[in-house]
């Protein structure tokens, strides 16, 4: 599903990832843990092809993330959502289908939204169907996060990557959002890799924990075997 071998990413002189080896199998639900700057976002960016590694090899779904057809099967919920505020909600959700669309269809859809039933069904699942035609910038932070989830739902990815997908949601919504992500991945027998901070969410929704510190993998074990001291160590707290 996802295989990183000796992956290093350098920004200028600093290494955001430093020789990371990681393999994720179909059906796994992996939580990425680590303090801010530990390399979680960079790891996810390498996996979806946004960032090319300085060294090492990346295989995603049996191909290279540089291949557009491979990327089309990888869905990402970004930390800052990366929605276009000036577009209506329906267009931002439809953007999840851009990989399958010709340029002409993409352009026409801005005039007459294509695949409306699917979009509305996805919005229904995130509880935003009645805001479908509103400008996205008029929505609250939590609502925008749900638009990003809906975009992922219409994309139907095999591999789901999520960078702090619950950061703007209240505890109940956060819990449901994680369930939604897990189901989206499971629907096609895929995997979920999510950067998370909340230990409760990790225990409920993931079965494996990968801890990062200074760009290296420092912890990799089933969630049941992770202790409070392990977490304290990851976040630099004195045990």
């Amino acid at each position: 599903m996802l295989r990183l071998a000796g992956v290093t990413v350098r920004y200028g002189g600093t290494a955001a990832l430093d020789g990371v080896d990681l393999t994720v199998a179909p059906g796994e639900r992996v939580a990425l843990l680590g303090a801010s700057g530990a390399g979680k976002s960079t790891l996810l960016a390498v996996a979806n092809g946004s960032v090319a590694p300085t060294a090492g090899a990346v295989r995603v779904l049996g191909g290279s993330p540089a291949d557009r057809r491979v990327r089309a099967r990888v869905g990402t919920v970004h930390q800052s959502l990366e929605l276009v505020g000036r577009l209506r909600v329906v267009h931002n959700v439809n953007a999840g289908l851009l990989a399958d669309w010709s340029a002409a269809r993409a352009a026409w859809s801005l005039v007459r939204p294509q695949g409306l039933p699917e979009v509305l069904a996805a919005l229904e699942r995130v509880g935003l169907a009645d805001r479908a035609f509103e400008r996205t910038e008029r929505l609250s932070g939590g609502q925008r996060q749900r638009v990003a989830l809906a975009r992922l739902l219409v994309q139907r990815p095999d591999l789901v990557l999520a960078d702090e997908p619950a950061s703007a949601l209240d505890p109940v919504l956060a819990d449901r959002a994680l369930t939604l992500l897990g189901e989206t991945a499971a629907a096609r027998g895929g995997a979920l890799v999510a950067a998370l901070h909340d230990p409760a969410l990790v225990r409920r929704h993931c079965d494996r924990v990968v801890g990062l510190a200074g760009g290296r993998v420092v912890l990799d074990r089933p969630v049941a075997g992770v202790s409070a001291a392990d977490l304290g160590g990851l976040y630099g707290a004195v045990p």
């Binding site: 960016a45 979806n48 092809g49 946004s50 557009r68 057809r69 491979v70 990327r71 089309a72 099967r73 990888v74 869905g75 990402t76 970004h78 800052s80 990366e82 929605l83 276009v84 505020g85 000036r86 577009l87 267009h91 931002n92 439809n94 953007a95 999840g96 851009l98 990989a99 669309w101 010709s102 340029a103 993409a106 352009a107 801005l110 994309q155 990815p157």
Partner: peptide, 28 residues
């Protein structure tokens, strides 16, 4: 650049990524 990069990350063609990620914000 991030919204356009996000669309590229989900496999959008360059024209599609431009139409949805750049044009709506640049038009005004």
């Amino acid at each position: 650049p991030r919204p356009r990069a996000a669309l590229a990350a989900l496999g959008a063609r360059p024209v599609g990524a431009w139409l949805y990620g750049v044009a709506p914000r640049a038009a005004g």
